[in-house]
Simulated scan of single mutants.
Amino acid sequence: MCSSVSAFQVPAMASLKRKRSDDSIMLNSHASVDGMESVANSSQSHRTFYHPLNGVEVTLIGCLHGSESSAMEVDQLLREKYTDAIVLELCPTRYKDLTRENAKRIEREKENGVGATDFINMVTKTIEARGVSTGFAAAILGAASSISNALSGFEQGLEFIRAIEFIDENDNDNYCDIILADRIVDETLRRVGSVPSLSMEMLQTYILSGLNWEKSYENESKALRSAVFGDDENDLDMTKALFRNPKVTMDLIRLTLPSILLVEAVNIGVGQNGSGPSTFYPSLVFDLLPSSNIPDLISIAGGLLFELVSSAILLFLGYIIVALPTVKVILTERDDHLAKGIDDACKRVAERYSEDTHRIGRVVCVVGFLHVNGILKRISHNT
């Protein structure tokens, strides 16, 4: 692991430049580009393209965070050919935390999730440094992540750890930079804490514009749809990538099943207490139909219609009040930072080989699945 951290932080991203002589780290700024040539397979979770301004080869890997399948793919793609720079979806703070926790994990038996004391200390320090709203956001995100990791067996940041270990293993043979391209975590937590106010602003814009979708929610809605399904054949389609082989599919099940079981357990508990909403079960309805008269049938149909309309309204409200404001904070804003980090890495590598016409250089980027298509569009369109 990298043993020392130095220099300063910049608002958008930072690069950790490793040298052959030592483990020192330098932080630098970023650049911007437009246009792109890409090579893609719709079932793959990674995309390979050539930077439009300098021709550097870029492999952009979409990961299911913490999964063994994604960690294995990162390791395999890094070993395919010589790599000049690795871009990680991390900021300096998260990088330090991840490497420190991984060192602790190596020294002790593997634990499930984060200890209660560590979690409480993290939330307390965040509140003291950044305020209650940011601390509350950190608590929610941290608790959700810890529960999910504990139940699924995922290891937080496993794909990033594999990338860092790759550099450590090949440090004497491979001059490779680590680019930390994500937004500073404190700023992300602050933005997450501001989601309620952002939600009200977007809702107000929607209402005052006469329910004009394009002026209020269109950008985030398109970004979410594009992140999941893509817009063209060069984009990543998560419905294909997440089922491309049994190992990935099993990791997806391990990640989602615990959450589903938790929700069902809560629903059962609420129902047993008599406070849960009544539910129409289709089998019960069909059993009652033969013995029901017309008024009863009308009543049943009315109840079903009410349930359907109520569910649709709740889903729509959750979509515009919670999902889309969160997409803006967690997805689209961070896509900007990650794309700039890749730009910086490509510029750095191109300068390294500016006098070598036989080398174009290679950059490997490790990010979450949902960031892949947004990054591709920003690099190709300079948005």
Rank of each mutant, 00 (worst) to 15 (best):
S145L: 08
G361D: 06
D118H: 05
G153Y: 04
E169F: 01
G274H: 06
R352Y: 09
F286V: 09
V322T: 14
I120F: 10
R105W: 04
S145Y: 01
L289M: 12
I86N: 07
A103I: 07
N267E: 09
S32I: 14
I300G: 00
K110V: 15
K81Q: 13
A85R: 10
S354W: 01
E214A: 15
L304P: 00
I140S: 11
V285D: 00
A312P: 00
P92D: 10
V349F: 11
Y50G: 00
G142E: 04
L288I: 00
T357I: 11
L261I: 05
L141A: 14
Y217R: 05
K19E: 13
A241L: 04
L141V: 11
T332L: 04
T279M: 03
M238Y: 02
R94K: 13
F286D: 04
S133K: 11
E307W: 02
G368L: 04
S69N: 07
E351Y: 05
L338G: 09
P11V: 14
V56W: 13
M200N: 10
D118C: 02
V185W: 07
A345Q: 09
D237G: 01
L257G: 00
L189S: 06
N170W: 03
S278R: 10
M13G: 12
L284T: 15
I360N: 11
V322R: 14
V123G: 03
Y353L: 07
V132Q: 05
E187A: 12
R162M: 09
L304I: 15
E73G: 02
I330F: 12
D335L: 02
S275W: 03
L208D: 15
K125L: 05
